[in-house]
Amino acid sequence: MANDGEFKRDQNYITTRITADGRDGYPVEPGRYRLVIARACPWANRAAIVRRLLGLEDVLSMGICGPVHDERSWTFDLDPGGKDPVLGIERLQEAFFKRDPEYPRGITVPAIVDIPTGQVVTNDFAQITIDMSLEWTAHHRDGAPELYPERLRDEIDDVASKVFKDVNNGVYQCGFATSQEAYDEAYRRLWDRLDWLSDRLAGRRYLVGDTITEADVRLFTTLVRFDAVYHGHFKCNRHKLSEMPVLWAYTRDLFQTPGFGDTIHFPQIKEHYYVVHKTVNPTGIVPAGPDESGWLTPHGREELGGRPFGDGTPPRPPIEAERVPGPGEGASTAKPAH
């Protein structure tokens, strides 16, 4: 937290990469690595979506932490015995300390762990999804979409940078500001950018090009959490997402696209934010709303054209161990991945 009350995100991550040629010492190998996420976390949600869209479930297993953590780290409390069934650890912290016993920074998701050594390879969330697209191509499913096409990368990077600064991170800068001035500035930038995005998406179905790209994945994970947590909990309350016609329709369109909404667990999202952030919500009370039924209503975005997967096809349904309850199915805990 800066002296002026502005929230400053620590963006120093373990940047080792898993690549096709193994140049960082970690070659792409089916079954060697485990992606660790939490359903609650928007940054981890990106990796879960991209893994689904590209069909990497059979080559990159996924561990799922519970929605609540303490100052030490995320825990595997959803799994039998409170241990990840593949890594055999109770806390993600253990994988970070195997890599560096003096690891000084936050224990974050998503993280990819090398199963043979039990060491974390990387928690660089922005690079993880790009590498899934570019380095794991030999293991993509038939019909996998091109989420980071070379011809559009400059535009995707430009849009994604704006979205990160003002929206993905902007909601946190609103919620964790400790001065009125810092909050007001973050609030202004957030809504200026959301208005810009609304204008951009008014006449086009997706952010860049006519198919889903990395840019859409990055925006979706913030917008899908907006009414449930950011509007009230983080004081981002000019409008609800459901009161912004273009962005509400856009987000519903993606939510109803295989690979997006089937990664979203609203009860865990709410539990994380309202329970963990004691400085923002000291009572720890988790709100009952909002009503989730609207997520499945018609969005009308097909009229704008575009093809979600380009020349590809939708991903298969989630494997049973990774299925989440859909809107209206209740607050049951997601089944752990094995």
Rank of each mutant, 00 (worst) to 15 (best):
208 V>D: 02
208 V>W: 07
209 G>I: 13
209 G>T: 10
209 G>M: 10
211 T>V: 03
213 T>G: 06
213 T>Y: 10
213 T>P: 15
216 D>P: 03
218 R>I: 02
218 R>F: 06
218 R>N: 10
219 L>K: 07
220 F>D: 11
225 R>W: 13
227 D>S: 10
227 D>G: 03
227 D>L: 03
228 A>V: 09
229 V>A: 10
230 Y>P: 07
231 H>N: 09
232 G>T: 12
232 G>N: 15
234 F>W: 06
235 K>M: 11
240 K>L: 15
244 M>T: 15
245 P>E: 05
246 V>K: 06
246 V>Q: 06
247 L>E: 07
247 L>G: 12
247 L>H: 00
249 A>Y: 01
250 Y>R: 04
250 Y>A: 12
251 T>G: 10
252 R>A: 02
252 R>F: 07
253 D>C: 02
253 D>G: 07
254 L>N: 05
254 L>V: 12
255 F>S: 09
255 F>W: 08
255 F>A: 00
258 P>K: 14
259 G>D: 03
260 F>Y: 11
261 G>S: 01
263 T>K: 08
264 I>K: 00
264 I>Q: 08
265 H>C: 08
266 F>A: 08
268 Q>A: 14
269 I>Y: 07
269 I>D: 02
270 K>S: 13
272 H>K: 00
275 V>W: 01
275 V>Q: 13
277 H>W: 10
281 N>G: 01
281 N>P: 04
283 T>H: 07
286 V>W: 00
287 P>A: 10
287 P>Y: 00
289 G>V: 11
289 G>Q: 04
290 P>M: 11
292 E>I: 01
293 S>V: 07
293 S>C: 05
293 S>L: 06
293 S>D: 12
296 L>A: 00
297 T>K: 13
297 T>L: 05
